[in-house]
Every structure is written in C-alpha cells, then in structure tokens.
Computed example of a mutant assay.
Amino acid sequence: MRKKVIVTSAVTGAGDTTKKSSHVPITPKEIAIAAIESAKAGATIAHIHVRDPKTGALSHDPQLFREVVERVRESDTDVILNITAGGGGDWIPSQENPAVGGPGTDIQTPEERHEPVATLLPEICTLDCGSLNFGDQLYISPTDWLRKQARLIQQSGVKPELECFDTGHLRFAKQLMDEGLIDGDPMFQFCLGIPWGADADAETILYMRDKLPKNAHWSAFGIGRYQMPIAIQTMLLGGNVRVGLEDNLYLDKGVFATNSQLVDKVVTFMDGLGTKPMTPQEARIHLKLNNPHGKAE
C-alpha cells in the first residue's frame, strides 16, 4: 500500500440521479461548489460532468463546462480538474426500426466530445476505451473514433485518464499506447460494477492491475454499495481511489450523502490504513501533468 493516495471526487455524473437525491449538484455554481468542498475534504482531483440547469439532465454545453472551470479556478482552493470527454455515446435502438436510434439516443463525434477539453485545457480528461452494454442501452465508442479522440487529446497536452469498464477496454488502451497515441506514463481508471461491465470485486481488480504496463498509474471505483469496499480494496492493492455522487448516492443505508461527506469517509478509512490523500501539487508532480491553469499550493 502506498503512503499517499490520489483521491478523485466524481461530483455529479450524467445519470438520472437528480430526482433521487437533492444533494446531486445541477447548476455550474453547484457543481463548482461541490468540487471545492470535495477538495477541502481531501480530494486531489474533481471529475466534472455538466447538466442542464433547468432539467438536471445530461448536457454537453461547453459554456456550462466553462462556468464550472472558471468558478473553481477563481476560488482559493486548489484541485486538479478532470473533465469528462465521454460525450454523447448513448445508443437506444428504435422499436420501429432498430437500424436507427430511438428516444434517448445521444451520439457525438470525437471532435464534439473533445470540444470542452480543447477549449478549457484541463489538466486531465477521460477517454472511455470501448463500447459497452451499459444497463439497458449501449454506450458507443468505436476504435477508430477512439484513435481520433486520443490524437486530439494528445495534441492538446491534456493527460487522458483511460477509462476501462471491461477487460477488453484495457487491451485497447494498451493498443493506443503501442500506436504512440498516449504520451508519458499512462493513467488508468477501472470502472467496476456497472451492468454489464467488469465485476466489482478483488479478483477483477487484481486481474486488471496485473495486466497494466509497468509504468502505469491506476485507480478504481465501484458503484452503489460497492463504492467504499472497492476504495479500501484498491488502496490495499496499491491503487488510487474515486468516490462521489456520480457513482453512489448514500453515506450509509438510507442516508443520502454529499460529495464532501464521501470524500471525508474515505479519508477516514485512509487514516486507519496509515495513508493519506496526495495534495494536488504532489499529484501534478507524480503524474507529470501539464499545468496550464492549475493553482500552486
């Protein structure tokens, strides 16, 4: 187990969770406050999606990302920003004609997915490394699109976090490395417990960890009730952790959480294990991040 661990707070996500908990931030101001409060609780990184301020639904609007980023950067709290570049990838076949997308389908090109990253130059952005049966819909991220998107991220100087929802995604992420599309030491995120991706258990973490390149940084998260058990298991196995309302709404059974409470809870576990969160500035050095807009401590 490492002496210091990178803690990511995924503060809002894209799921239909705003009707389930009033603590899920919706507006850019609320999302920025959640990121700042998470950082004050011990988070190293804030992972950012944006939502339509009127409906709470997923949004891809670059201006909403801009407002979140500017509010965080203008604050007195340092935190590394990790902007989603997963974009529109939801495919739900039409009942009348399964060859076309039905209601709920939301597809963006690689260029559209990359637009907030190109505009705002965060220190990190995500790259979802493959398609997946995601619950009752399909998340689409074809290999040619991923190559194009990886090249765009590379040209921007932003570090990609390679999101692996299943073992094949890990294989393709390494293929991107072999093709010279990932610079420096790669940064992997194991996304566990999502129907119907990789299981949220120790065996899966071990399998995926042991398939990593030797110079890789890695993290893992589990959804729902698996969030804290996976965080603890990941730390014991030498990885970094992610918590937050994107993945889990509850602090305890029947008790809704805030993002900062989830960060505080995992930091408390870390204290018991003899480790502590890495600061944003320590993580910048550790991950060798470009830092066009980050604030030094």
Results as ranks from 00 to 15, higher is better:
I107H: 07
L132H: 13
K29V: 01
Q227L: 07
H47L: 06
V68H: 03
I92Y: 14
P98K: 13
E161D: 10
G135Q: 13
R225P: 00
E74T: 09
D252T: 04
E163C: 03
M228L: 14
V50L: 01
L138C: 03
Y250G: 00
L146M: 15
L192Q: 00
L245R: 02
I33V: 12
L120D: 06
A198M: 02
R51N: 05
N259T: 12
E112H: 10
D128Q: 03
Q175S: 10
P229Q: 13
D16C: 14
I232A: 12
K19H: 15
E163I: 07
G180R: 08
H49R: 01
Y226H: 12
P62T: 06
Q227E: 15
P213E: 12
F269N: 13
G180F: 08
K211G: 06
F221G: 01
Q155R: 13
L176E: 14
V255M: 11
I48T: 01
K20Y: 07
G130A: 04
K148Y: 04
L287H: 02
V24Y: 05
D106V: 04
K20N: 15
G193L: 04
L132I: 15
K253F: 11
Q149A: 12
G274H: 13
G88L: 11
D128T: 12
I230W: 01
K3C: 03
P62L: 06
D247N: 15
G180V: 09
D201R: 09
R147I: 13
Q227R: 05
G193T: 03
I31P: 00
Q281V: 12
I230C: 05
V117H: 02
W218Y: 07
I194C: 01
G56S: 06
Q63M: 07
V241M: 09
A39K: 09
E179N: 03
A99D: 14
T109V: 10
V5Y: 04
A220C: 10
S59T: 04
D52N: 14
P110Q: 07
F269Y: 15
W196N: 12
P292T: 06
V117L: 07
F190W: 05
N82R: 05
I153L: 08
G294M: 13
E112Q: 15
G294E: 12
L287G: 02
K214V: 12
G168I: 08
R225V: 04
W196C: 03
V50I: 01
D144M: 13
K253I: 11
S141W: 02
A43H: 04
D144Y: 11
E246R: 07
T258Q: 14
V69R: 00
G238D: 11
I92Q: 14
Q95I: 15
L289H: 05
E179I: 03
